[in-house]
């Protein structure tokens, strides 16, 4: 850092400009080097005699992804057959489970966070819930809630609710006595305390929990479809593998990565809007 500034001061302007151009070029290329190497490695693996059987060539996987998941017809919203049959139901169940977890986690978290006695009563259970290997309960959920979409949705919700619940309690408890005193002295009505002090104050922590929950819900989505499923990406993983359809298997992995990236980007955008003040505060403290 200091070397660069020293450099800049000494060297004449034209070379600084050309260096900036070179740097802009390298910053566009650099991030692509490793992905390119990985694709090359993937291709090389698919050519190898031993493992080539299980590794579908990148080209085939790309073709298959495009043909399975995209369609030229506007009537299908440009979604391919597999996308409509498996991706959409998967995402629908994941979204439902995720939202259920957000509503329950934030709601319950605020109640517990505002009542130290309740929080202390249930703290060990929340810790236990966070540590449970939820996939182990998949069989039980089918038995308890039947075979349709509900056991899957509830399993996703049960699996991802804990980080939201834990972080909401933590966030609410972290609001602090100073702000509680302000609320008391100025006789702020409970509704305003809840919506304008507690909720915004806990929001950074809540968002951290929700982000963990979001990536966890993708995992739970896949797991919930590994058994007793008729559609979904998890089902497709098992089905393609059983039928030795390795391009199909790799296609699912690619789609899962794409879905994960898209969800992450959406999450970052929402956070940016809601927590703009928080970035301001932390930037100021740096």
């Amino acid at each position: 850092m200091s070397a660069i500034t020293r450099d800049r001061a000494v060297r004449p302007a034209p070379s600084a400009v050309s260096r900036r151009i070179r740097r802009a070029g390298s910053s566009a290329i650099l991030p692509l080097v490793v992905p390119a190497l990985l694709v090359a490695l993937w291709w090389w693996g698919s050519e190898s005699a031993v493992n080539g059987l299980f590794i579908a060539p990148p080209r085939d996987v790309l073709d298959r992804t495009l043909s399975d998941f995209l369609s030229p017809h506007p009537g299908d919203l440009f979604l391919g057959e597999v996308a409509r049959h498996d991706l959409v139901p998967s995402l629908w169940r994941a979204a439902l489970g995720f939202w259920l977890a957000v509503v329950v986690g934030v709601g319950l978290g605020i109640v517990l966070g505002l009542r130290p006695v309740l929080a202390a009563l249930f703290q060990p259970l929340v810790h236990l819930g966070r540590s449970l290997p939820t996939p182990a309960l998949i069989g039980v959920f089918f038995l308890l809630f039947g075979t349709g979409d509900w056991p899957k949705v509830l399993l996703i919700a049960f699996g991802v609710v804990w980080p939201i619940l834990f972080n909401t309690i933590d966030g609410v408890q972290g609001i602090g006595t100073a702000r509680a005193h302000v609320a008391s002295v100025f006789k702020i009505p409970s509704r305003d305390v809840l919506l304008r002090i507690v909720l915004p104050g806990a929001a950074p922590k809540i968002f951290a929990g929700v982000r963990v929950a979001l990536s966890l819900s993708l995992i739970m989505m896949v797991i919930s479809e590994l058994q007793k499923a008729k559609n979904g990406l998890g089902y497709l993983l098992v089905y393609s593998q059983r039928n030795f359809d390795y391009p199909g298997f790799w296609t699912v992995l690619v789609v899962l990565a794409v879905v994960g990236i898209v969800l992450n980007v959406i999450m970052i955008q929402i956070e940016r809007r809601v927590l703009a003040w928080h970035r301001g505060v932390t930037a100021q403290h740096d």
Binding site: V34, P135, L237, L253, L256, A257, V259, G260, L263, N264
Partner: peptide
């Protein structure tokens, strides 16, 4: 950082469990 940031962002959302069978 520039070399690996994009790769990390691509690979991170992949559920580890799904890669397991492979």
């Amino acid at each position: 950082f520039k070399l690996f940031a994009l790769t990390v962002e691509i690979l991170r959302p992949l559920p580890a469990i799904a890669v397991g069978p492979l």
